[in-house]
Design a protein around this nucleic acid. Sequence first.
DNA 1: CCTTTATATGAACAACAATTCATATGTTCA
DNA 2: TGAACATATGAATTGTTGTTCATATAAAGG
Lengths: 109, 109
Amino acid sequence: MKEYHCKQALKAEKNIPDDITASEIADFLKIFADTTRIKILYALLDQELCVNDISMMLSMEQSAISHQLRVLRQYKLVKVRREGKSSYYTLNDSHIHEILIRGYDHIME
Amino acid sequence: MKEYHCKQALKAEKNIPDDITASEIADFLKIFADTTRIKILYALLDQELCVNDISMMLSMEQSAISHQLRVLRQYKLVKVRREGKSSYYTLNDSHIHEILIRGYDHIME
DNA sequence: CCTTTATATGAACAACAATTCATATGTTCA
DNA sequence: TGAACATATGAATTGTTGTTCATATAAAGG
Protein backbone atom coordinates (compact mmCIF):
# COMPACT_ATOMS: atom_id res chain seq x y z
CA MET A 1 0.00 0.00 0.00
CA LYS A 2 1.12 3.51 -0.88
CA GLU A 3 2.18 6.02 1.73
CA TYR A 4 1.78 9.76 1.99
CA HIS A 5 4.80 11.85 1.15
CA CYS A 6 4.29 14.22 4.04
CA LYS A 7 3.20 13.50 7.58
CA GLN A 8 0.73 16.39 7.82
CA ALA A 9 -1.43 14.54 5.33
CA LEU A 10 -2.68 12.39 8.20
CA LYS A 11 -4.07 15.48 9.92
CA ALA A 12 -5.49 16.88 6.69
CA GLU A 13 -7.43 13.70 6.06
CA LYS A 14 -9.59 14.37 9.08
CA ASN A 15 -10.80 17.70 7.75
CA ILE A 16 -12.14 16.26 4.51
CA PRO A 17 -15.92 15.92 4.49
CA ASP A 18 -17.37 12.60 3.42
CA ASP A 19 -19.00 12.27 0.00
CA ILE A 20 -22.50 13.03 1.20
CA THR A 21 -21.54 16.13 3.14
CA ALA A 22 -19.32 17.41 0.35
CA SER A 23 -22.20 16.99 -2.10
CA GLU A 24 -24.59 18.79 0.18
CA ILE A 25 -22.27 21.76 0.42
CA ALA A 26 -21.51 21.76 -3.29
CA ASP A 27 -25.17 21.40 -4.25
CA PHE A 28 -26.18 24.23 -1.97
CA LEU A 29 -23.59 26.60 -3.40
CA LYS A 30 -24.48 25.48 -6.91
CA ILE A 31 -27.82 27.20 -6.54
CA PHE A 32 -26.09 30.56 -6.33
CA ALA A 33 -23.59 29.74 -9.04
CA ASP A 34 -25.79 30.83 -11.91
CA THR A 35 -26.22 34.28 -13.41
CA THR A 36 -29.97 34.06 -13.82
CA ARG A 37 -30.62 32.81 -10.29
CA ILE A 38 -28.29 35.48 -8.88
CA LYS A 39 -30.28 38.16 -10.65
CA ILE A 40 -33.59 36.72 -9.48
CA LEU A 41 -32.40 36.56 -5.88
CA TYR A 42 -31.15 40.16 -5.96
CA ALA A 43 -34.44 41.28 -7.48
CA LEU A 44 -36.26 39.63 -4.58
CA LEU A 45 -34.09 41.15 -1.85
CA ASP A 46 -36.49 43.90 -0.81
CA GLN A 47 -39.91 42.91 -2.15
CA GLU A 48 -42.04 40.16 -3.57
CA LEU A 49 -42.41 39.90 -7.33
CA CYS A 50 -44.62 38.03 -9.76
CA VAL A 51 -43.17 35.82 -12.48
CA ASN A 52 -44.19 38.17 -15.27
CA ASP A 53 -42.32 41.11 -13.75
CA ILE A 54 -39.15 39.11 -13.11
CA SER A 55 -39.31 37.86 -16.67
CA MET A 56 -39.63 41.42 -17.95
CA MET A 57 -36.89 42.97 -15.87
CA LEU A 58 -34.39 40.28 -16.85
CA SER A 59 -35.54 40.31 -20.48
CA MET A 60 -35.89 36.56 -20.39
CA GLU A 61 -38.65 34.17 -21.37
CA GLN A 62 -41.28 33.43 -18.77
CA SER A 63 -40.55 29.75 -19.12
CA ALA A 64 -36.86 30.14 -18.26
CA ILE A 65 -37.77 32.15 -15.17
CA SER A 66 -40.35 29.61 -14.04
CA HIS A 67 -37.80 26.82 -14.39
CA GLN A 68 -35.26 28.68 -12.27
CA LEU A 69 -37.87 29.63 -9.68
CA ARG A 70 -38.66 25.96 -9.39
CA VAL A 71 -35.04 25.25 -8.51
CA LEU A 72 -35.05 28.04 -5.93
CA ARG A 73 -38.31 26.70 -4.51
CA GLN A 74 -36.99 23.14 -4.29
CA TYR A 75 -34.07 24.31 -2.22
CA LYS A 76 -36.34 26.47 -0.08
CA LEU A 77 -34.64 29.71 -1.01
CA VAL A 78 -37.89 31.32 -2.08
CA LYS A 79 -41.53 30.81 -1.26
CA VAL A 80 -44.62 31.39 -3.36
CA ARG A 81 -47.92 33.03 -2.66
CA ARG A 82 -50.69 32.57 -5.17
CA GLU A 83 -53.14 35.39 -5.73
CA GLY A 84 -55.54 35.21 -8.62
CA LYS A 85 -53.70 34.41 -11.82
CA SER A 86 -50.32 35.44 -10.46
CA SER A 87 -47.68 33.80 -8.29
CA TYR A 88 -45.71 36.07 -6.00
CA TYR A 89 -42.25 35.00 -4.93
CA THR A 90 -40.27 36.16 -1.91
CA LEU A 91 -36.98 35.20 -0.31
CA ASN A 92 -37.35 32.57 2.36
CA ASP A 93 -34.35 33.19 4.53
CA SER A 94 -31.94 35.86 5.70
CA HIS A 95 -28.85 33.69 5.16
CA ILE A 96 -29.26 34.20 1.46
CA HIS A 97 -28.66 37.90 1.59
CA GLU A 98 -25.53 37.39 3.64
CA ILE A 99 -24.08 34.80 1.31
CA LEU A 100 -24.69 36.99 -1.73
CA ILE A 101 -23.02 39.98 -0.12
CA ARG A 102 -19.99 37.92 0.87
CA GLY A 103 -19.52 36.53 -2.61
CA TYR A 104 -19.69 40.08 -3.88
CA ASP A 105 -17.22 41.46 -1.33
CA HIS A 106 -14.58 38.91 -2.14
CA ILE A 107 -14.65 39.79 -5.81
CA MET A 108 -14.53 43.51 -5.18
CA GLU A 109 -11.36 43.43 -3.10
CA MET B 1 -44.21 48.62 -24.75
CA LYS B 2 -45.17 46.24 -21.98
CA GLU B 3 -45.64 47.37 -18.41
CA TYR B 4 -44.91 45.75 -15.10
CA HIS B 5 -47.88 44.26 -13.28
CA CYS B 6 -46.78 45.55 -9.89
CA LYS B 7 -45.31 48.88 -8.96
CA GLN B 8 -42.62 47.46 -6.66
CA ALA B 9 -40.96 46.03 -9.76
CA LEU B 10 -39.50 49.47 -10.40
CA LYS B 11 -37.66 49.32 -7.08
CA ALA B 12 -36.61 45.71 -7.58
CA GLU B 13 -34.99 46.56 -10.92
CA LYS B 14 -32.41 48.68 -9.17
CA ASN B 15 -31.14 45.79 -7.06
CA ILE B 16 -30.38 43.56 -10.02
CA PRO B 17 -26.70 43.40 -10.83
CA ASP B 18 -25.65 43.97 -14.44
CA ASP B 19 -24.54 41.00 -16.54
CA ILE B 20 -20.86 41.40 -15.76
CA THR B 21 -21.33 41.68 -12.01
CA ALA B 22 -23.80 38.80 -11.93
CA SER B 23 -21.33 36.63 -13.82
CA GLU B 24 -18.51 37.56 -11.45
CA ILE B 25 -20.57 36.52 -8.46
CA ALA B 26 -21.83 33.35 -10.11
CA ASP B 27 -18.36 32.39 -11.34
CA PHE B 28 -16.85 32.95 -7.92
CA LEU B 29 -19.43 30.76 -6.21
CA LYS B 30 -19.10 28.18 -8.96
CA ILE B 31 -15.60 27.41 -7.71
CA PHE B 32 -17.04 26.10 -4.45
CA ALA B 33 -19.91 24.32 -6.14
CA ASP B 34 -18.01 21.12 -6.83
CA THR B 35 -17.48 18.12 -4.58
CA THR B 36 -13.84 17.61 -5.49
CA ARG B 37 -12.86 21.24 -4.99
CA ILE B 38 -14.76 21.34 -1.68
CA LYS B 39 -12.77 18.35 -0.46
CA ILE B 40 -9.48 19.84 -1.60
CA LEU B 41 -10.21 23.14 0.13
CA TYR B 42 -11.14 21.41 3.38
CA ALA B 43 -7.99 19.30 3.20
CA LEU B 44 -5.96 22.49 2.88
CA LEU B 45 -7.63 24.28 5.78
CA ASP B 46 -4.88 23.67 8.35
CA GLN B 47 -1.76 22.75 6.39
CA GLU B 48 -0.05 22.70 3.03
CA LEU B 49 -0.21 19.55 0.96
CA CYS B 50 1.52 18.19 -2.13
CA VAL B 51 -0.46 17.00 -5.15
CA ASN B 52 0.39 13.35 -4.57
CA ASP B 53 -1.01 13.36 -1.04
CA ILE B 54 -4.23 15.12 -2.04
CA SER B 55 -4.65 12.63 -4.84
CA MET B 56 -4.19 9.75 -2.40
CA MET B 57 -6.51 11.00 0.31
CA LEU B 58 -9.32 11.64 -2.16
CA SER B 59 -8.63 8.39 -4.01
CA MET B 60 -8.61 10.26 -7.28
CA GLU B 61 -6.21 10.39 -10.20
CA GLN B 62 -3.36 12.85 -9.95
CA SER B 63 -4.45 14.41 -13.21
CA ALA B 64 -7.93 15.19 -11.96
CA ILE B 65 -6.47 16.82 -8.86
CA SER B 66 -4.00 18.88 -10.87
CA HIS B 67 -6.79 20.15 -13.11
CA GLN B 68 -8.86 21.22 -10.14
CA LEU B 69 -5.88 22.83 -8.43
CA ARG B 70 -5.37 24.83 -11.58
CA VAL B 71 -8.91 26.19 -11.28
CA LEU B 72 -8.33 27.06 -7.64
CA ARG B 73 -5.05 28.74 -8.57
CA GLN B 74 -6.63 30.75 -11.38
CA TYR B 75 -9.16 32.18 -8.98
CA LYS B 76 -6.46 32.83 -6.39
CA LEU B 77 -7.97 30.55 -3.78
CA VAL B 78 -4.75 28.61 -3.34
CA LYS B 79 -1.09 29.33 -3.90
CA VAL B 80 1.76 27.00 -4.83
CA ARG B 81 5.27 26.58 -3.54
CA ARG B 82 7.65 24.44 -5.54
CA GLU B 83 10.25 22.40 -3.70
CA GLY B 84 12.22 19.79 -5.56
CA LYS B 85 9.91 17.57 -7.53
CA SER B 86 6.84 18.46 -5.50
CA SER B 87 4.36 21.33 -5.51
CA TYR B 88 2.91 22.34 -2.18
CA TYR B 89 -0.47 24.02 -2.13
CA THR B 90 -1.95 26.22 0.60
CA LEU B 91 -5.09 28.32 0.97
CA ASN B 92 -4.61 31.88 -0.10
CA ASP B 93 -7.23 33.71 1.87
CA SER B 94 -9.23 33.61 5.08
CA HIS B 95 -12.53 34.40 3.33
CA ILE B 96 -12.56 30.89 1.99
CA HIS B 97 -12.81 29.23 5.36
CA GLU B 98 -15.69 31.50 6.31
CA ILE B 99 -17.64 30.85 3.15
CA LEU B 100 -17.27 27.09 3.52
CA ILE B 101 -18.46 27.17 7.11
CA ARG B 102 -21.48 29.27 6.19
CA GLY B 103 -22.51 26.98 3.38
CA TYR B 104 -22.24 24.12 5.83
CA ASP B 105 -24.24 25.84 8.57
CA HIS B 106 -27.14 26.60 6.31
CA ILE B 107 -27.50 22.99 5.28
CA MET B 108 -27.25 21.69 8.84
CA GLU B 109 -30.10 23.79 10.15
C1' DC C 1 22.83 10.84 -19.61
C1' DC C 2 19.12 7.85 -18.65
C1' DT C 3 15.60 6.40 -15.49
C1' DT C 4 12.39 7.35 -12.07
C1' DT C 5 9.29 10.27 -9.75
C1' DA C 6 6.17 14.42 -9.35
C1' DT C 7 3.32 17.48 -11.51
C1' DA C 8 1.03 19.89 -15.47
C1' DT C 9 -1.63 20.11 -19.54
C1' DG C 10 -4.19 19.26 -24.09
C1' DA C 11 -7.74 16.62 -26.29
C1' DA C 12 -11.60 13.53 -26.16
C1' DC C 13 -15.51 11.88 -23.88
C1' DA C 14 -19.41 11.74 -20.80
C1' DA C 15 -22.54 13.81 -17.68
C1' DC C 16 -25.10 17.64 -16.47
C1' DA C 17 -27.59 21.99 -16.59
C1' DA C 18 -29.90 26.11 -18.80
C1' DT C 19 -32.82 27.67 -22.32
C1' DT C 20 -36.39 27.21 -25.78
C1' DC C 21 -40.55 25.42 -27.71
C1' DA C 22 -44.82 23.47 -27.26
C1' DT C 23 -48.34 22.60 -24.36
C1' DA C 24 -50.85 21.94 -19.95
C1' DT C 25 -53.02 23.83 -15.82
C1' DG C 26 -55.51 27.14 -13.50
C1' DT C 27 -57.87 31.73 -12.88
C1' DT C 28 -60.70 35.68 -14.22
C1' DC C 29 -64.18 37.88 -16.59
C1' DA C 30 -67.28 38.68 -20.37
C1' DT D 1 -68.71 28.20 -21.00
C1' DG D 2 -65.25 30.09 -23.64
C1' DA D 3 -61.58 33.49 -24.45
C1' DA D 4 -57.60 35.71 -22.50
C1' DC D 5 -54.04 35.77 -19.33
C1' DA D 6 -50.44 33.97 -15.85
C1' DT D 7 -47.72 30.37 -14.66
C1' DA D 8 -45.89 25.56 -14.76
C1' DT D 9 -43.82 21.71 -16.91
C1' DG D 10 -41.96 18.00 -20.23
C1' DA D 11 -38.96 17.18 -24.08
C1' DA D 12 -35.39 18.50 -27.08
C1' DT D 13 -31.32 21.09 -27.80
C1' DT D 14 -27.16 23.32 -26.80
C1' DG D 15 -23.39 24.73 -23.97
C1' DT D 16 -20.56 23.84 -20.11
C1' DT D 17 -17.71 21.23 -16.96
C1' DG D 18 -15.24 17.24 -14.73
C1' DT D 19 -12.66 13.20 -15.56
C1' DT D 20 -9.65 10.25 -18.14
C1' DC D 21 -5.97 9.17 -21.22
C1' DA D 22 -1.87 10.26 -23.25
C1' DT D 23 1.90 12.95 -23.09
C1' DA D 24 4.92 16.90 -21.75
C1' DT D 25 7.91 19.24 -18.49
C1' DA D 26 10.98 19.21 -14.72
C1' DA D 27 13.83 17.67 -10.91
C1' DA D 28 16.76 14.05 -8.53
C1' DG D 29 19.64 10.12 -8.28
C1' DG D 30 22.20 6.43 -10.05
